[in-house]
C-alpha cells in the first residue's frame, strides 16, 4: 500500500485540494473497510457465540458508523480531543496568546523634547533615538516621523537638498513630509505636539495628525 493515491484512479488527480480531499476520502474509506472487517469477523464470532447460546440474535447487529455505540464513542472521543487541542492551540497562537506579551518595556510614546528656544528657526532637528524630526518655521513647530512609509527604514534630513531621503529604497519627501519620489505610498506621519506646564515641547507619537497641523507658540 503506497498511500492514498493508489486507491484512486489517475483521472481524479488535480491540484492540492483534490489531493487533500482524496486523503480524507482514503481515511474514511479505510475506516469503513475496518468497520466491514469488524462487522464481518465480529458477526462470525457473534454467530458462533449465538449458536452456542451465549448471546441472543438481536444483539448481533453492529450498526452503521453513526449508530453503532462504539463508533459514536470513537467519534466523540476524537471530537473532544481535537477541540481541546484546538482550544489550547488557539490560546497559544491567538493575539491574546503566548506570543503576545501583556507588559511592554518600551520607551513611552509621549515624551518631552525640550524648550522651543532649543530649536533654531528654519531648521530640522533630528531626534534619532525618538525617531522623530522637529521642524521649526518661525514660531510654528511640527513633529515629523523618521519612519519611511515604504518599509519602515529611518529617513534622514538632507540639508543641502532640503528634503528627507530614505537610504533603503530611495524614497524622497519634501520638508513638509510629502512624498515625491521612490516607492513611498504616502507622506510621513505628523505627530501631535503640545506644551507642558513648564513650557517644554511634548511630542505624542501615538497621535497622528493632519499634515497642515502645526503647533503655534
Amino acid at each position: 500500500m503506497r498511500g492514498p493515491q493508489s486507491t484512486r484512479p489517475p483521472s481524479e488527480e488535480g491540484g492540492p485540494f483534490v489531493w487533500y480531499a482524496n486523503c480524507l476520502l482514503f481515511v474514511l474509506d479505510r475506516h469503513q473497510a475496518s468497520r466491514k472487517y469488524d462487522v464481518l469477523y465480529g458477526e462470525r464470532d457473534d454467530m458462533e457465540r449465538a449458536e452456542s447460546g451465549a448471546i441472543k440474535e438481536e444483539e448481533v447487529s453492529a450498526g452503521g458508523i453513526w449508530t453503532s455505540r462504539r463508533s459514536f464513542f470513537t467519534l466523540a472521543g476524537w471530537a473532544l480531543f481535537l477541540s481541546t487541542m484546538g482550544a489550547y492551540l488557539w490560546k497559544l497562537l491567538s493575539t491574546t496568546g503566548f506570543f503576545f506579551p501583556r507588559v511592554l518595556y518600551e520607551p513611552s510614546k509621549k515624551f518631552l523634547v525640550g524648550y522651543p528656544t532649543d530649536f533654531p528657526d528654519h531648521t530640522v532637528i533630528t531626534l534619532k533615538a525618538r525617531r522623530v524630526f522637529v521642524v521649526r518655521e518661525g514660531n510654528t513647530f511640527q513633529a515629523i516621523s523618521m519612519i519611511c512609509q515604504h518599509l519602515g527604514c529611518a529617513v534622514h534630513w538632507s540639508e543641502e537638498k532640503g528634503i528627507f531621503e530614505c537610504p533603503c529604497h530611495g524614497s524622497k519627501y519634501y520638508k513638509d513630509g510629502v512624498n515625491f519620489a521612490g516607492p513611498a505610498p504616502r507622506p510621513l506621519f505628523h505627530f501631535q505636539m503640545n506644551v507642558s506646564d513648564d513650557g517644554k515641547l511634548i511630542v505624542d507619537t501615538s497621535q497622528v495628525v493632519e499634515l497642515e497641523t502645526k503647533l503655534l507658540i
Binding site: T95, T96, F99, F100, P101, L104, Y105, E106
Partner: peptide
C-alpha cells in the same frame, strides 16, 4: 500592539 508583526517581535519596535 496585537498583530502578527507584534507576535514576531514581542513588541511594537525592534528591541
Amino acid at each position: 500592539d496585537n498583530d502578527i508583526r507584534f507576535g514576531l517581535l514581542g513588541g511594537t519596535s525592534i528591541q
